[in-house]
C-alpha cells in the first residue's frame, strides 16, 4: 500500500469534517506541520477542536486557523506570543482548555496507547484539578486525567522511508511523537522520503504503523521565534 501522496490536500482527502478533533505536533514554530495546517485552512473545515502545545503566532502555524476562525476550541499548555488568540479568548469567541504541558503529552501518549486515564501529581491543588477525581497513593494526592483520542493527527518529521517509518530532527521532535499516536489516522509531512532499507531500523523514532499517509513538504523555510546567538572572540 502506497502511503505517499503528492501534496497535503491530497493526503487529507476524505479525512476532514466539521467539529472534528485534530492533534497537531510542534513546539512553538519548531516542528510544526505547516503544509498540513495550510491545507486544513484551504479546506474550509470548521468548528475544530485542536490539541496542540501552542497556538502558533499571529499568522504562522495554527495562528492561520485562528485568524480564519476555523477553531472552536484549543487544548494547549502555552499560548503566549499570539495576539489574535488572546483577543478571541478574552472576547469569549474561542474556548480554551489549559492543560499542563507534561499532562498534555501524557494524555496523547496514553490515548494512543489505549489508556483512557491516568493519575498524576501535576496540577493537584490548582484549578487544573477542579472537578476531577482525586486519589491517594502512598500518602500523596493524585488527579485523574483523561487520555486523548483524536479523529486526526498531523505531524512533521525529518525523514521517512516509503514504509512510513519516521525520524525526527533535534528538538523538532517534541510533541510530534506523542501526537502521532493519538489520532485514529495520522498524516505526516516530511523533508525527505527515502527508499526502505535506508534508515537504520534501530534508530526509528516513530514506527510505520502510526503513519497512515505522508507527503513530501520540502522545501521548508523554517521560522525562528527568538534568534539568540553569541559572538566569536577575535583571534
Amino acid at each position: 500500500m502506497k502511503k505517499s501522496y503528492p501534496d497535503a490536500a491530497a493526503a487529507l482527502d476524505g479525512l476532514l469534517f466539521d467539529g472534528m478533533t485534530i492533534c497537531a505536533g510542534g513546539f512553538g514554530l519548531c516542528g510544526i506541520p505547516e503544509r498540513l495546517i495550510d491545507a486544513v485552512r484551504e479546506s474550509g473545515v470548521k468548528d475544530l477542536i485542536v490539541v496542540s502545545n501552542n497556538a502558533g503566532i499571529d499568522n504562522e502555524g495554527l495562528g492561520k486557523l485562528l485568524r480564519s476562525r476555523q477553531i472552536r476550541k484549543m487544548i494547549s499548555s502555552y499560548v503566549g506570543e499570539n495576539k489574535e488568540f488572546e483577543r478571541q479568548y478574552l472576547a469569549g469567541e474561542l474556548e480554551v482548555e489549559f492543560c499542563p504541558q507534561g499532562t498534555l503529552a501524557e494524555r496523547c501518549r496514553a490515548g494512543g496507547a489505549g489508556i483512557p486515564g491516568f493519575y498524576t501529581k501535576t496540577g493537584v491543588g490548582t484549578i487544573v484539578a477542579e472537578g476531577k477525581e482525586l486519589k491517594e497513593f502512598d500518602g500523596e494526592t493524585y488527579v485523574l486525567e483523561r487520555g486523548i483520542r483524536a479523529d486526526l493527527s498531523i505531524v512533521k518529521g525529518w525523514k521517512a522511508d516509503e514504509a512510513g517509518n519516521l525520524v525526527f530532527r533535534k528538538t523538532a521532535r517534541n510533541f510530534n511523537q506523542p501526537m502521532a499516536t493519538a489520532g485514529k489516522v495520522c498524516v505526516a509531512e516530511v523533508e525527505e522520503i527515502v527508499a526502505v532499507g535506508t534508515l537504520d531500523p534501530d534508530c526509528i523514532h516513530l514506527p510505520s504503523i502510526y503513519v497512515k499517509r505522508m507527503l513530501l513538504g520540502a522545501p521548508y523555510e523554517k521560522k525562528i521565534e527568538f534568534r539568540t546567538t553569541r559572538t566569536r572572540e577575535a583571534a
Binding site: Q101, G102, R169, T171, N174, P178, F226
Partner: peptide, 23 residues
C-alpha cells in the same frame, strides 16, 4: 531552527546531548 530551548530561543548542542519527545 530545529534546535531551540523551551523559551523558543536558538541554542546549540553538546557532544553529550540527547533528544527525545515531549512525553
Amino acid at each position: 531552527p530545529d534546535l531551540i530551548n523551551a523559551g523558543k530561543q536558538t541554542i546549540s548542542e553538546l557532544p553529550s546531548s540527547s533528544y527525545f519527545g515531549s512525553e
